[in-house]
Amino acid sequence: MAAIFAQGLTRIYRRSAEEIAALFGVDLIVEPGEFVAITGASGAGKTTLLNLLGCLDRPTSGLLKLLGRDVSTLRGKDLETMRRQYVGFVFQDYCLVPTLTVEENVTLPLLFSRALHQRDRVRDLLARVDLQHRSDHLPRELSGGEQQRVAIARALVNNPEILLADEPTGNLDSKRGNEIVALLRDMNHTEGVTIVLSTHNLDLANRADRQIKLVDGRVV
């Protein structure tokens, strides 16, 4: 069973009378435990594809299965459940809650899934991303690379099967970017989590198991 199975995945945005096809007829299979990089220029549809894979958005048409479950027709609470239980998300600009400490940010998904008893997992992950000594710090007190490591720990705290990272190195210099990809690679090996990462940096994409290139919303 594929971790991700997409067939004819299409997302069209309607603005007034105008229709914009952000993604058109994408076919995709990602096996469990794979580390896949989605590449393409800005506006190629990478973020749209990750949003669909992450159950943040719904396709206009096409079939999408995550871990064997058809999510293309799911709505409301079912999509929430998928996001909460099976998918972790890492954003380009970290998106940490500025008022919460590092530890509280990582704990947040546990709060939403009513699983605060798994707090050991938070400490374990903070150790894994080498930030246990910064657990009481606020995001503004951390560097960009450190914030992204917190975001990765947050994405993994619920033990998701799939981790989606949208341009996770986009705001970092090459050294920090390499560190983040290395960390994701490490998590992919040790946690067995399937990772789909979007980037326009081919050097980083080359470190993935496989690359999928998007051009104008289509896989090429």
């Binding site: 929430e80 972790g88 809650v97 994405a155």
Partner: peptide, 16 residues
């Protein structure tokens, strides 16, 4: 708006 969107993305339900 962004913070709420991120919370939804990391598992918060509408009720949360």
């Amino acid at each position: 708006t962004r913070e709420i969107g991120v919370m939804r993305a990391i598992g918060a339900s509408r009720g949360d």
